[in-house]
Design a protein around this nucleic acid. Structure first.
Length: 212
DNA sequence: GACCAGGCACATC
DNA sequence: GATGTGCATGGT
């Protein structure tokens, strides 16, 4: 598996090149984006982020002071907006309650401990927590998403219903503890997923991993 | 109009 | 513990 994971990475990297993830200007934007993208097309997330930015409201302090109802109207394009507004507020309550809204302070917590804390926030599950850890705070955790599962199960490398921790373990046991590698690998899987491995994509059989 | 998208919590069996 | 369902907009 170790070798296979490396071969797949090299194949994807030579096909698509560096992905420069996460597509955001700063860490807080990553965090908001990580919540907004839950079960949602990234294009719809971008619209919501753009709206927050246009109104100069994409800051921890401003959103912390804002009502959920108000946040909800601003992020409408991202879908599930009532739910997600509440989730953003829940995160901010935790963030200000424990770290006074200071990203540096949060980043100083051991990442395994921080992962547990993030998972205790209602609305933050494993993928969102790991996205925050890896892409906002540069911690060495591998992010598993729907594309990762679909791609690897279609290529016979994992069981279709393998759970999150199981899939994550495969990557983290077999790859070096490298933030840069985890960052790029996940981003490349999403790229492959979007281009070739959507739910009923006829191109799936001719993706760049075919035959690997 | 149908189907899908970078999840998660909660109910029910 | 597994499986199903609600949450919702916008693109293809």
């Amino acid at each position: 598996m170790r070798r296979k994971l490396k071969v797949i990475f090299r194949r994807l990297y030579s096909e698509f090149g560096p992905q420069h993830w996460w597509p955001a200007e700063d860490s807080f934007e990553v965090i908001v984006g990580a919540v907004l993208t839950q079960g949602t097309n990234w294009l719809n997330v971008e619209k919501a982020i753009a709206r927050l930015k246009a109104k100069n409201l994409l800051s921890p302090e401003k959103l912390f002071r804002m009502s959920s109802a108000k946040i909800s109207t601003l992020i409408k394009s991202a879908g599930y907006h009532n739910i997600k507004a509440g989730r953003i507020k829940e995160f901010l309550k935790f963030f200000f309650g424990v770290y006074q809204g200071d990203l540096k302070k949060m980043s100083q917590t051991d990442h395994r401990e921080l992962r547990k804390l993030l998972l205790s926030v209602k609305g933050i599950g494993p993928e969102t927590a790991d996205s925050i850890l890896l892409y906002a705070l540069n911690k060495p955790v591998f992010v598993v998403d729907a594309y990762t599962r679909r791609i690897f199960s279609r290529h016979g490398l994992i069981q279709e219903k393998a759970d999150y921790a199981e899939v994550q373990d495969i990557f983290m046991r077999n790859l070096k503890d490298s933030v840069r590698m985890f960052n790029e690998y996940h981003a490349l899987l999403v790229k492959l997923g979007k281009d070739y491995c959507r739910k009923q994509d006829p191109k799936c059989g001719i993706c760049p991993l075919h035959g690997q």
